[in-house]
Simulated assay, not measured.
Amino acid sequence: MEGFSVEMKRKAPAKVNLALDILGRREDGYHEMRMVMQTVSLCDTVTVRETEEAFSLRTDGDFIPAGKKTLEQQAAELFFQAAGQTMPGLAVTLEKRTPAYAGMGGGSADVAALLRLLRDRYCPAMADEELERIGLAVGSDMPFCVRGGTALAEGRGEVLTDLPPLPTCTFVLCKPDFGIPTPTLFARVDGAELTARPDIGGMTAALAVGDLEGVAARLGNVFEEVLPPEYREVFTIKERLRELGAMNAAMSGSGPTVFGIFRCRTEAERAAAALKARYAQTFVAEPVKKFAGLE
């Protein structure tokens, strides 16, 4: 198969967790999850070209520090092993727009986009399930980020069931100027009796009949129940989104990004403008159906 004679680009859309529940800690050290995940149009761009040199990765013009294999390199090596091919030299560039360490799967989305691009170019017969398996070896969010759309994610996040697409709506995504260490939240979940679990069955039923109000009413994330006091600004943003017209709002993943669902884009853009005066990393996005229009 001919390699990259020219640069090839692929969008890497972020995700939000419409619902996130943690069922318990597993014997392998991971947690048993149950989530409804949704791809959104906020995205990075991944560019690849074949070179005579070893694998390299740049992000926004800067080299990634040497001395450790990046997730992108690990995924590329696993891809070519699975494809039974020798890995060529690859120069990968990331144009970042999705905030890092934000609960929106930005890093996982970049790796997933790279895997889809490599598959399409070097091994188009490779099944989606195999690409998801390769992704799982790198990170738990990878299988969903490879698949995209709207899905129920169980297990570590790798057991995926496609769901009917989210009805037309607009998201406002707002990341405050701090990060939340994911291991800290998982540790707090392990020692907590969770009482505010999301109604995931009700959400999937609402999706089945195209009931946006029913989906919005059931947004939920158990991590919110165990947030340390220093991260309570998450709840301030949630309340502000509702005041600005959101049908509902919730934290995505392990945060700190909060998203609100709006019925129309005009209303969402007004809300985003109001939030951006205080929170620079505020974005407007649409739900994405299986990467339609982004490939």
Rank of each mutant, 00 (worst) to 15 (best):
L71P: 01
C174L: 09
A153K: 02
T170K: 14
T195E: 15
E130G: 05
L244H: 03
G3Q: 02
E77L: 08
A137W: 00
G220I: 10
P143V: 11
E52P: 05
T282A: 02
G148Y: 07
K15D: 10
E50Y: 08
E77T: 07
L114T: 03
E295I: 04
P99R: 11
L173A: 06
T86V: 12
A187S: 14
Q281C: 01
E50I: 09
E295G: 05
G107L: 06
G214F: 11
A112C: 02
V284E: 00
E239M: 03
V288L: 09
N17K: 14
M247E: 06
V226Q: 13
A249L: 11
P143G: 13
E286S: 12
S5Y: 10
K276Y: 01
D190R: 05
V40S: 07
G155M: 04
E193V: 11
Y30R: 02
E77V: 07
R97C: 10
M126K: 02
K276S: 08
N248W: 08
V222H: 04
A250F: 07
F55T: 06
A113Q: 07
T168G: 11
K9F: 13
A271Y: 09
T282P: 04
C174W: 10
T257H: 02
V172S: 04
R58L: 14
L90S: 04
R147V: 07
G220E: 03
A196P: 00
F262T: 02
T98M: 15
A12S: 12
P228R: 04
E52S: 11
L136K: 12
K68S: 15
R147Q: 11
E27Y: 03
A76I: 03
L166V: 15
G89F: 14
G106L: 06
R232P: 00
V40F: 06
A292S: 10
P176W: 00
Q74S: 08
T257D: 08
I64L: 15
L207N: 08
L18T: 04
A216W: 01
G24H: 08
Q281V: 00
P229V: 04
A250H: 00
S56L: 10
M37N: 07
A151P: 01
V111I: 10
A192H: 14
R156V: 12
A249P: 07
T47P: 00
D141Y: 11
E267S: 13
E286A: 15
S254Q: 02
T45R: 10
D62W: 14
V36L: 08
Q74F: 04
L241W: 01
T47Y: 08
K69R: 15
E158N: 09
I237F: 00
K276P: 01
A196F: 08
L294Q: 08
G67W: 14
T47K: 12
G191F: 06
L115D: 03
A208Y: 01
L117E: 06
K11N: 05
V138N: 06
D60R: 14
T39Y: 05
Y231T: 02
G220A: 06
A125V: 04
F259L: 11
M203F: 05
P256R: 09
E50K: 15
L78C: 05
R147C: 01
A19N: 02
M87E: 07
V209R: 15
G253P: 07
L94N: 03
Y122Q: 07
T51H: 02
C174A: 13
T257V: 12
L57T: 14
K238E: 03
Q281N: 10
G67C: 13
A192S: 13
D21P: 12
I237V: 10
E239N: 09
E286P: 01
M1C: 01
L117V: 07
R156Y: 08
